[in-house]
C-alpha cells in the first residue's frame, strides 16, 4: 500500500463492505499511521446490498473519518437492471463491472486496491499483486509483469491503471484469524442470527427489504432461520447457510470443519461456467 501511494498519482481503495474490505481498511490504517490512509474509499453500489451493509458502511465512514465515494451506475438503474429480472450475470456485469469502470474514469484513479486473494479460485493462483489494465480497463494477459523479491514495478502510462491486491497471499483462514486477533469489526450478517429467509432453488435467500417481499413467488413463505453468510454481496444473490456460529472462534471453527468452499455461496459462479479469467478480462475485478 505504501508502494502504491508513493508511486501512483491518484490511488483509491475499493470498499465492498465485506470482511476483506474490513481487513484492508485496518491494514491501510496500519500502513500510514499516524497519518490517516491518504486515499479515498470507493464503493460501487448496485443498490441491492443488505440493509445491514449500508448501515455498517455509514458507521465505518463516520468512525474512521473515511473519504467515502459511492458510485451507482445510473444508466443501469434507468434501464431497470436488477438481479431478479436481469439475472445475476447481467446485473453484476452492468451494476458492478460497468459501474466500477465508470467510477474509475470519473475520478481518474490510476491505482485501485482490491481484496482479491489467490486462494479463492484456482485460475487466480497466478494473478499478480500489481495487475495492469489498459486504457479500456482490460486485463491483457501478455502485459503483466514478473514480480521479483519485494520489487514492484508500478510504472504506467497516462490512462493505464493498475489493480493492486495486497491480500494476494492470504488465505481465507488468514483473513478470519486476522479479524479475530485484531478485533476488526465486520458486518453482523457474518454471525449467525434468526433471519427471514426463503428457500429458492436449494439456497436460502434472505428477505432483506420489501423489494424481495413483493417478489415472493407463489408458495414462498419467509421463515425465520438461524443463518449466517460466508460471503456478502447483493442479497438476492447471496446464499445463507444454517449455522449457530455467533462468535469469531465459532465461525472459524465452522469454516475449518466446513466441507464446501466460500465460493459456493456466490450465485454468480453457479450461473455461468465461464472462468474467472474471462470475467477478469472484462474488468470484473
Amino acid at each position: 500500500m505504501r508502494e502504491v501511494v508513493a508511486v501512483a498519482e491518484n490511488p483509491v481503495m475499493l470498499y465492498s463492505i465485506g470482511k476483506d474490505s474490513s481487513v484492508m481498511l485496518r491494514l491501510a490504517e496500519k500502513a500510514f499511521a499516524p497519518a490517516p490512509p491518504p486515499f479515498p474509499f470507493l464503493h460501487v453500489d448496485t443498490t441491492w446490498k443488505f440493509q445491514d451493509m449500508y448501515a455498517f458502511r455509514a458507521q465505518m465512514a463516520s468512525e474512521h473519518g473515511l473519504n467515502l465515494l459511492v458510485h451507482v451506475n445510473e444508466d443501469g438503474l434507468a434501464r431497470g437492471i436488477n438481479p431478479f429480472d436481469s439475472g445475476s450475470v447481467v446485473h453484476t456485469d452492468v451494476m458492478k463491472t460497468e459501474g466500477l469502470k465508470q467510477a474509475l474514469d470519473k475520478y481518474g484513479f490510476d491505482a485501485a486496491f482490491g481484496g482479491a486473494r489467490r486462494d479463492e479460485e484456482k485460475s487466480r493462483a497466478k494473478e499478480r499483486i500489481f495487475s495492469f489494465r489498459t486504457v479500456q480497463h482490460r486485463w491483457d494477459p501478455k502485459n503483466q509483469r514478473p514480480e521479483l523479491w519485494r520489487l514492484y514495478n508500478a510504472r504506467h502510462r497516462r490512462g493505464e491503471s493498475l489493480r493492486v491486491f495486497p491480500l494476494s497471499n492470504w488465505t481465507e483462514l488468514d483473513v478470519w484469524l486476522y479479524i479475530h486477533r485484531e478485533e476488526i469489526p465486520i458486518v453482523p450478517l457474518y454471525f449467525a442470527a434468526e433471519r427471514p429467509v426463503v428457500d429458492r432453488d436449494g439456497t436460502w435467500i434472505m428477505v432483506d427489504d420489501d423489494r424481495m417481499q413483493s417478489r415472493l413467488e407463489p408458495g414462498e413463505e419467509p421463515e425465520l432461520k438461524r443463518v449466517r453468510f460466508r460471503t456478502l454481496g447483493c442479497y438476492p444473490l447471496s446464499g445463507a447457510i444454517e449455522s449457530d456460529a455467533d462468535t469469531l472462534p465459532k465461525i472459524i471453527q465452522e469454516m475449518l470443519l466446513a466441507r464446501t468452499s466460500e465460493r459456493q455461496g456466490r450465485m454468480i459462479d453457479h450461473d455461468e461456467s465461464a472462468s474467472m479469467e474471462k470475467k477478469k478480462v472484462e474488468g470484473y475485478f
Binding site: 489467490r118 486462494d119 484456482k122 485460475s123 487466480r124 493462483a125 497466478k126 494477459p141 501478455k142 503483466q144 509483469r145 514478473p146 494476494s168 497471499n169 488465505t171 472462468s275 479469467e277
Partner: peptide, 20 residues
Amino acid sequence: LDGLAAEREQGITIDVAYRF
C-alpha cells in the same frame, strides 16, 4: 492445478502460480 494450462492457451509467457 489447471490454472496454468488455461494461461498457456492465452499465450501468457510469464507465469508463476502460488498455492497455499
